[in-house]
Design a protein around this nucleic acid. Structure first.
Lengths: 365, 365
DNA sequence: AAGCACCTTGACCACCGGTGTCAACAGTCA
DNA sequence: TGACTGTTGACACCGGTGGTCAAGGTGCTT
């Protein structure tokens, strides 16, 4: 039986500082030191570290005691060299939203904390000519253990194909499933958008607009589709003249907002693909002399901190981004643990509408 | 002469995909392949990679041609194992501001792009009991090439001492210098704060308040000192009763703002330690029925995107955070390049006041 | 009691893909 | 001819891993 399992967690999580000859000096114990101190061969130490089943319990205990006592942790470089793998998880992203990225990082780190894995971040530009080469170099040279792909990189089939080619495990985070379940974390954006639609429809709005993100994001379509479906449930239609395509930026939100409000029959409610653009609509409304929510209801997407900082506080659809990062990383790590233990999470999360004070019934003078 | 120089840039920056036997398969060429194809020993290839001066020019040319043709790049793990160093730069931070962190990351990555170094992020909690052990484990196990320390971690002498112990180069980013020049990047926050003070004083304000960040940040004191100095220049005093200590969070901004505005003689202008708290003051002012800037002038610090998204747009002191990240990383890399080439940047940056629409002369009815 | 299989362990070697050390081999100059 | 310098390669090593095989212990069977 070949064991490819790799899990230094038990030892890497140790908070000991080491002792004796290893305290003062900067020198850390090696596997040879541990072998000597435990009076076993280094091969046995290796067996313990890699959780080989053919080690007697008291030998294991003895070795683990020495490991813990002297704060030994295997050198990831040496181990990686032998395994032809590193213990680095890559986060490849092309996302303008800092809060999204930070939360995702935090989530991933929560999952790998104390496991000996580390997180390497790699922002990129999907439109750059050397984008794919860059990603390939990054993944292959670092021999990444796995990568997490949030939108919009997750939607790029070229990236998925490339990672398959170089045999690098990945988890794609996206609003709908378009890959094998173990490679996907589905966020069901459409559900959240539908909830926003029902919320606005139930408030009595008829002229309802939608500002999407760029069409290069699948989530843009998905949020649009969910929103239209939600309106349809209430017998309303998302009319083409009330649709605009933004760029997920504040500025594009201002522009689309101004454009919508300049219509002969402007909308009384706007749903935007993210909070940044909602903030842009706030600006447009203010410039048009309109008051939110009296003259215009606004709903955003992301529930970023910004939603609480603008006035009035923005009703927004929340995605549990930290959890997403955590689950994605867990899915990667599962593959190393021989799939023994599966977490409860099935690779799905659902958004949820957070109601604040930016929506009201349409004003009828 | 022992060469510790490490600079795979020339090759790591290559965008070639390789050829022949290395194109189709996932297999990448090793140093042995290059040696064989160039008809030299692998040691000589190693010499070329490490820019050893004792290689004949035509040998070097020959080897470099093969390297380029087959898209060879040395394995960072193997190299690291031999060097007892990795090619990973750590960013250890304890900072609640996502924009700050993302900008810093981006700056660091700009500096190391194409150099073969990668960025490993390590958020932490300075107050956690295992904070130092955690940092030590991270740095030592990964054998980090160097670390960048933004505030507030940069201000922690225990961290600096620990890094010195384990012989890990670091660059501390802070508002004042308190370490050797090659270890410091000074941001001179006090200058920006003074500029804010002069701006408010020149507008005619007399009752001027300051909401600092937590006292665990040296920058809090530094910004306060600079602000007081700026006021003093104009013959004004920063009175103790107009000082509050916040936590760099929106909520703390609201609280301190409400507290100030409830005074018998409330301030007519407020300077806050960051933009988040300024947004909090906005909220407090609105809740008190005050209009900005008519009834209250506000100046923030950071010039985060938030400054443009609130209404009215916030006047704020800008720090060039991306540049700071870039310069910090460059300072680290310089040490590898045998200090031959020094960049122009001396390890200093200066903040700058960005005037928007949140300040005016005090309202006198 | 002997014979047997099985479990556990270690000794040893090769290997991952690079680097340091040192010696050998030019070629040049005195 | 010898000393010196510049260039190159053989070999051990970084700190782990896998593989093979044999030694010793255990428990089981007969």
């Amino acid at each position: 039986m070949t064991r490819t399992a790799v899990d230094p967690a038990t030892i890497a999580g140790s908070d000991d500082k080491g002792e004796d000859e290893f305290t003062a000096a900067g020198r850390r114990p090696t596997i040879n030191d541990v072998a000597r101190l435990a009076r076993v061969s280094k091969k046995t130490v290796s067996r313990v570290i890699n959780k080989s089943p053919s080690v007697k319990d008291d030998t294991r205990t003895k070795v683990e005691a020495v490991i813990k006592r002297y704060g030994y942790a295997p050198d990831p470089q040496a181990r990686g060299l032998a395994f032809r793998k590193s213990f680095l998880i890559g986060l490849i992203y092309d996302n303008p939203n800092p809060q999204y990225v930070i939360d995702m990082q935090q989530g991933i780190l929560n999952a790998v904390r104390g496991s000996g894995y580390e997180l390497v971040v790699h922002p990129c530009d999907r439109r750059a000519p050397n984008f794919l080469t860059d990603v390939r170099n990054f993944v292959q040279r670092q021999k990444l253990f796995g990568v997490v792909l949030p939108p919009s990189v997750s939607e790029d089939e070229r990236v998925a194909q490339l990672l398959t080619e170089v045999e690098c495990p990945y988890v794609r985070i996206a609003s709908v499933a378009f890959d094998a379940p173990e490679c996907m974390l589905v966020t069901h954006d459409s559900e959240g958008a539908a909830e926003a639609a029902r919320h606005l429809a139930d408030a009595g709005h008829q002229r309802i607009a939608f500002i999407s993100g760029p069409s290069t994001f699948k989530s843009s379509h998905e949020r649009g589709r969910g929103f239209a479906d939600g309106l349809a449930e209430r017998g309303l239609e998302l009319r083409p003249e009330y649709r605009r395509e933004g760029a997920y930026t504040f500025e594009s939100g201002v522009a689309c907002g101004k454009d919508l409000l300049a219509m002969r029959l402007p909308p009384t409610a706007v749903f935007t693909g993210n909070d940044e653009m909602a903030a842009g609509v706030y600006r447009a409304a203010r410039d048009a002399g309109l008051e939110i929510p009296r003259d215009l209801s606004v709903v955003g997407f992301d529930d970023s901190p910004l939603a609480e900082r603008v006035w009035p506080p923005l009703t927004s659809v929340r995605l549990p981004i930290r959890d997403m990062g955590r689950i994605a990383a867990e899915k990667l790590l599962e593959r190393a643990l021989d799939k023994k233990e599966r977490t409860q999470d099935d690779g799905e999360v659902f958004p949820k509408l957070v109601e604040r004070r930016s929506t009201a019934s349409p004003y009828s003078p």
